[in-house]
Write a protein that binds this DNA or RNA. Structure first.
Lengths: 341, 341
DNA sequence: ATGAAAGCGCTAACAC
DNA sequence: GTGTTAGCGCTTTCAT
C-alpha cells in the first residue's frame, strides 16, 4: 500500500512523471512544452498531477528556461487609490492575456533608494517584463536592463526616449476643465498651482493656460505644502469676497474636498456663489459628492500598457509614448457664472 | 583589453567570483552566507559585484536553498483603499524586518477560482510565508500548505483554527459607535444592515445590538443590493420625517456618503435634524467631510501580522487569533439628539 | 511521440 | 577562511 501523499509543495515533476508512467521530459512537455504530446499521455499526466496536488516550481522552471513569462509591476504607493486602481486593472488585463504578474512596492513612499530595492526584487525574480508605475525611479536606473527586459512606464506623463510609455494626457485633461469653466460663462477664476507636486503643478499650469487662452482672467494661488490646505483656501475665499472670481479650479479632487469645509464655513454656496472643479475622478465614492472633475483614464492606460507589453514580448520595437485623454465629469460643483457682487 | 561588460542581468555570481579572484562559494558566503569571510575578501567581492552590476538571481538562490525568505501577499482587491493601505503597511513592516515581499491579486474581484490562481502564483514562487488578505479563499484551500509555509490571514474577522489570524474587531468597533450614539442622547435610530455583504451585515447587526443594549430603539433597514443606494436612504428619510428616529448608522463610510445627497435633497440638516455615523475611516480625504465613524486599525493589523509571521518563521507555534480594536472618530455628523417633531 | 542527459545559477555540506 | 562538489526542479537539445 502507498504511503500517504507528501505535502503538495514537495511534489516534484519527477514524482508526477513516475505516477503517470512517463519520463520527466514528457511531463514537462505536457505542462508548457512546445512539442506535441499524445492525447492520452497528456491526460495521464494531468491526472497524476491532480492526484498528487502538484504545484509547479516557478523557480526551477524559469531557471531552466533562462527567464520567465511572469511580468512584474513596480507600483509607487498602493495606498493611493489611483495606483490601487491601476494595479487592479493591470492585473485584470495581464490575466486576460494569459500572463502572470507579481507586484512589488517600495517600503516607503519617498526615496529613490527604496524604489531601487523594489526594482531589484523584480529583477532578481528575472521577470519577463516590467511595468513601472512610479515617477521616482529615473530612466537612468532602468537603462541598464532595457535590452534584457521590456519596460513599460505607465501613468506618469514623462519618459525616456528608449522606454515605452503609456501616460495620462494631463495637459489635455486640464484643458477639458478649462473649457468647461469658460463655457459656463466664468470670466475670472482662481487656479491652485501647488509648488511641490510635479504632477499637480503641471495640471494647475495647464488649467491656467487653458483659461487664459479663452479670455478668462486667472488668479493663480500657489498652495503651500500639502499638509496645510487652509492657506490657499482662505485666499480663494478672500478672492470671492472681493468679487474677483466666480470659480476656483483645483489640481486634485482631494484639494477640492479640503476646500469644501472652508467654503461652507464662509457661507459660500456651491455653485451658486462659487463654482469649483477638481481633478482625478478616482476616489471611490467621490462621484456622490457631485464633483465636476476630469476622470483620468486609468483603465485605458492599463489596457494599452499590457498591449504594448505583449507586443514587446513578441518582438522589440521602437519605443513609443502614448498620451491618453481623460473624460470630463459634469458634476454639481460647476454652475453658470453668477453676477458678481 | 576587456570586452564591454555584458548586461547586468547576465552577470552570474561565478563571474563576480572570477572578477574578485575568489571561488563561487566564497562569493556566495559574502552575500548571504552564515560562515564568516575575511574582511578584505568581502570588500573585493562587493567591489566586483558593483563593477559588474550584478543582480543576484533569486530563482537560482531559492532553488538551491530549497526555499526563500521572500514573503507573499495575496490581496483581494487592490483598488479598494482599505486593501491598498493594508498592502502599503504590510510592505513597510516587512521591509522594516529586513524581509522581502511580493504581492499578487486575483484577476477579478469575485470568484474563488481567480483567487486560487493567485494563490498558486505565490506557491509557485515557493514563498517563505504568506499573508492572505481576502475572505474569498476558504481555509480549506489553504490547509494543504500549512505545514510547509506559514500563513497569516489578515483583516477578515473569521478564521480557521489551524491558521493564524490578525483581524479587525468589528463587533467592538460597532459597539464604539453604538455607545457614542447612545451617549449623544439618541433614543431611536435607524441601522443599515445589508444582506449581501458579510462584513457589512455583521457590522450592522453588531451596531443594532449595541444600541438595543443601551435602551435605544432600533429601526433596521435592510439595504438592498449595493448599486441602488436610493432605497434604504429613502426609508431613512421617511423614518426621520415620521419622527421615528434622530440618527442613522451606516456599516461603511461609502454608504454614509451615498446618503448625503438624499439628506440634502430632503432638506435634512446634519446633524441638527439627523445624526449620521459611518464605518471604516479609510477613504483618503474622507476625514475632511467630518464623518463620525470608526477607523479600522489597518496599521496595527499590518504590524501584528508581520510580527506573527516573523515568529512563525523562527518556530512554528500554535495558531492564534487576534482581534484589533479600532478608534472612534468624532466628526461633525453626530450631534446631540434633537427633540422630535 | 518520447526518453536520456546536460545544464540553468546558486547553496551547502564537506574537505583542506 | 576558503575551495570543491553535489545537487535544487526544471527545460531542452539530441537521439531514438
Amino acid at each position: 500500500m502507498d504511503n500517504e501523499a507528501p505535502s503538495p509543495l514537495k511534489v516534484t515533476m519527477a514524482a508526477v512523471a513516475v505516477e503517470a508512467g512517463v519520463s520527466r521530459a514528457t511531463a514537462s512537455r505536457v505542462f508548457y512544452g512546445s512539442t506535441p504530446v499524445a492525447e492520452h499521455t497528456r491526460q495521464a499526466v494531468y491526472a497524476a498531477a491532480e492526484r498528487l496536488g502538484y504545484v509547479p516550481n516557478t523557480m526551477a522552471r524559469s531557471l531552466a528556461a533562462r527567464g520567465s513569462d511572469i511580468l512584474g509591476l513596480l507600483v509607487r504607493a498602493p495606498d493611493n487609490p489611483a495606483y490601487g486602481l491601476l494595479f487592479s486593472e493591470l492585473q485584470a488585463n495581464v490575466s486576460g492575456a494569459g500572463l502572470q504578474m507579481v507586484t512589488v512596492a517600495p517600503s516607503r513612499n519617498e526615496g529613490a533608494h527604496f524604489e531601487r530595492q523594489a526594482l531589484n526584487r523584480l529583477l532578481g525574480l528575472r521577470v519577463g517584463g516590467m511595468f513601472v508605475a512610479t515617477g521616482v525611479i529615473s530612466a537612468g536606473m532602468l537603462e541598464p536592463f532595457l535590452d534584457l527586459v521590456p519596460v513599460v512606464v505607465v501613468g506618469r506623463p514623462e519618459s525616456h526616449p528608449d522606454i515605452h510609455g503609456v501616460s495620462y494626457d494631463e495637459d489635455h485633461n486640464a484643458d477639458l476643465l478649462a473649457h468647461a469653466v469658460a463655457a459656463a460663462g466664468h470670466r475670472s477664476a482662481a487656479v491652485v498651482v501647488p509648488e511641490h507636486s510635479v504632477s499637480e503643478h503641471r495640471r494647475g499650469a495647464a488649467m491656467a493656460r487653458g483659461l487664459t487662452e479663452r479670455g478668462v482672467r486667472v488668479h493663480q494661488v500657489s498652495s503651500p505644502t500639502f499638509g496645510s490646505q487652509g492657506e490657499g483656501g482662505r485666499e480663494i475665499v478672500a478672492l470671492r469676497r472681493a468679487g474677483l472670481i466666480t470659480a476656483a479650479m483645483f489640481p486634485s479632487d482631494f484639494r477640492l474636498l479640503a476646500f469644501l469645509p472652508l467654503a461652507q464655513e464662509a457661507g459660500l454656496r456651491v455653485p451658486e456663489d462659487l463654482s469649483l472643479t477638481g481633478f482625478d475622478g478616482i476616489l471611490p465614492g467621490i462621484d456622490l459628492l457631485g464633483f465636476t472633475t476630469v476622470r483620468i483614464p486609468v483603465e485605458d492606460a492599463a489596457r494599452r500598457a499590457v498591449e504594448v507589453m505583449r507586443a514587446q514580448l513578441e518582438e522589440r520595437t521602437r519605443p513609443r509614448h502614448e498620451l491618453l485623454p481623460g473624460t470630463l465629469i459634469r458634476g454639481r460643483t460647476l454652475g453658470p457664472a453668477p453676477t458678481l457682487r
